[in-house]
C-alpha cells in the first residue's frame, strides 16, 4: 500500500512537502493532512453549506411527506445511480493518478486524470438530460417545495462538479508539464481532496433525494 508516505525511504522525511501551515501534529508525528490546510478549511465551509441544504430538505420533507414522496416518483432513479457510479469511479481515478505521480509515473498520472475528467463530464451529460426532461415537463423552482429542493440542490452540486472539473483540468495540464512528482504532489492532493468532496456530497444526495421514501 502506498498511501501516506512519499517516495523512497532515503528521501522520506527530508523531501516530505512542508504544509504551508504547520499543523499541530506536523514534525513530531507521522500523521499528515494531505494537501493544503487552506483547502481543507474551504472544504469544511462547503460541507457546512451542503449540510444546511440537506437538513433543510430533510426537515421540509418531514412536514409534507406525501408531496415529497409523490414528486420523488418522477425522478430518474437510474440516472441518479449511474451518476453515483461515475463520480465514485472518477474519484478513484484521481487516487490512482496521485499514486502514479508519487511513483514519478507522469504518463500514468496524465492518463488517470484524463479518465477522471471523463467521468466528471459523463456526470454532467447525464444530469443535463435529466434536467431537460424535467424542464420539458414544465417543472420549475416554483412548482412545489420538493422540486425547489431537487433543482436547487442538484444544481448547486452540478456547479461544484463544473468547478471540480476546472480544477482537474489545471492539475492535468500541470502533470503534463511535469510540475508534479514524488517530491511535489501537494497541489495534486489539494485538488484531489476537493474532487472527493464533490463525490462525498453526491453519496448523501443520491439516497436522500432520489431513493429514500
Amino acid at each position: 500500500m502506498s498511501t501516506a508516505s512519499p517516495a523512497s525511504p532515503a528521501s522520506g522525511p527530508v523531501n516530505a512537502p512542508q504544509p504551508a501551515f504547520p499543523t499541530e501534529d506536523s514534525g513530531a508525528s507521522r500523521r499528515r493532512l494531505p494537501g493544503d490546510l487552506a483547502v481543507w478549511f474551504f472544504i469544511l465551509a462547503e460541507l457546512l453549506a451542503f449540510a444546511v441544504f440537506f437538513l433543510s430538505y430533510a426537515f421540509a420533507r418531514a412536514r409534507d411527506v406525501a408531496l415529497f414522496n409523490a414528486s420523488q416518483l418522477t425522478l430518474d432513479l437510474n440516472a441518479g445511480a449511474i451518476n453515483t457510479l461515475l463520480l465514485v469511479t472518477s474519484s478513484w481515478f484521481v487516487v490512482r493518478a496521485i499514486q502514479a505521480v508519487k511513483r514519478d509515473d507522469k504518463a500514468g498520472g496524465v492518463r488517470w486524470l484524463a479518465a477522471a475528467m471523463l467521468g466528471g463530464f459523463g456526470f454532467l451529460v447525464v444530469k443535463v438530460f435529466e434536467y431537460a426532461a424535467k424542464f420539458d415537463a414544465g417543472i420549475t423552482l416554483s412548482t412545489n417545495t420538493f422540486y425547489m429542493f431537487y433543482i436547487s440542490l442538484t444544481f448547486f452540486h452540478f456547479m461544484h462538479v463544473i468547478l471540480g472539473l476546472v480544477i482537474l483540468g489545471v492539475l492535468l495540464a500541470n502533470t503534463w508539464r511535469g510540475a508534479y512528482g514524488r517530491d511535489a504532489y501537494h497541489v495534486l492532493e489539494s485538488g484531489g481532496a476537493y474532487w472527493h468532496m464533490v463525490d462525498l456530497l453526491w453519496i448523501i444526495l443520491f439516497p436522500l433525494v432520489y431513493v429514500m421514501r
Partner: peptide, 18 residues
C-alpha cells in the same frame, strides 16, 4: 419575489458568518 427565495436566502445567508 417567488417563494423559493425564502429558502435560498435563508440557506446561503446563514453561511455569511463563515
Amino acid at each position: 419575489a417567488p417563494e423559493y427565495w425564502q429558502w435560498w436566502g435563508s440557506i446561503f445567508s446563514a453561511l455569511e458568518p463563515i
